[in-house]
């Protein structure tokens, strides 16, 4: 489930070789994401085999926020890596499909970097009959 699937620390230098090993052993890439900390970014990745997740965490210093791309090993990594680029501002050299920061067309650039301040906007009155999407 979760608590017995802890995040293991992984040196940045082992990032690619760990992915290659998991690919060779038949794991599936489940997810990649980041967390902004004051002086670094944490990058979390999860691989799954037989319903069991193996999770890793690697640290990127803020002044050298660069993560080697896994998209050559796990093709699906390109979506997660473009998301890391757009939300956290992390450079991902070697991306097979690089959107150049335009995968997520967010109004605020790199909103999850930890440097964003919340600004309240004036709410415009909704047009008559306007409705939102359900799902």
């Amino acid at each position: 489930m979760s608590l017995d699937e802890p995040f293991n620390d992984l040196a940045l230098g082992d990032w690619l070789s760990t992915a290659e090993r998991h690919r060779a052993e038949g794991y599936r890439l489940v997810q990649m994401t980041g967390t902004a900390r004051p002086d670094h970014f944490e990058i979390m990745i999860s691989y799954d085999k037989d319903y069991r997740c193996t999770n890793y965490r690697t640290l990127l210093p803020r002044d050298r926020a660069e993560l080697p791309s896994l998209s050559g090993i796990f093709p699906a990594a390109f979506t997660y890596e473009n998301e890391l680029k757009d939300l956290f501002g992390i450079a991902v050299p070697g991306l097979t499909v690089d959107y150049g920061g335009n995968f997520l067309r967010t109004k605020t650039k790199i909103p999850f970097s930890g440097d964003v301040t919340v600004k309240k906007e004036k709410v415009k009155p909704a047009a008559a009959g306007a409705s939102g999407s359900e799902g």
Binding site: D86, V97, Y99, N102, F103, L104, R105, T106, T108, F112
Partner: peptide
């Protein structure tokens, strides 16, 4: 085929921090 998303990104994950 080249997909692009994010037209209506809401940042709900960020709300959890606040």
């Amino acid at each position: 085929a080249l997909p692009s998303i994010g037209y209506v990104h809401r940042g709900l994950e960020l709300l959890a921090e606040r």
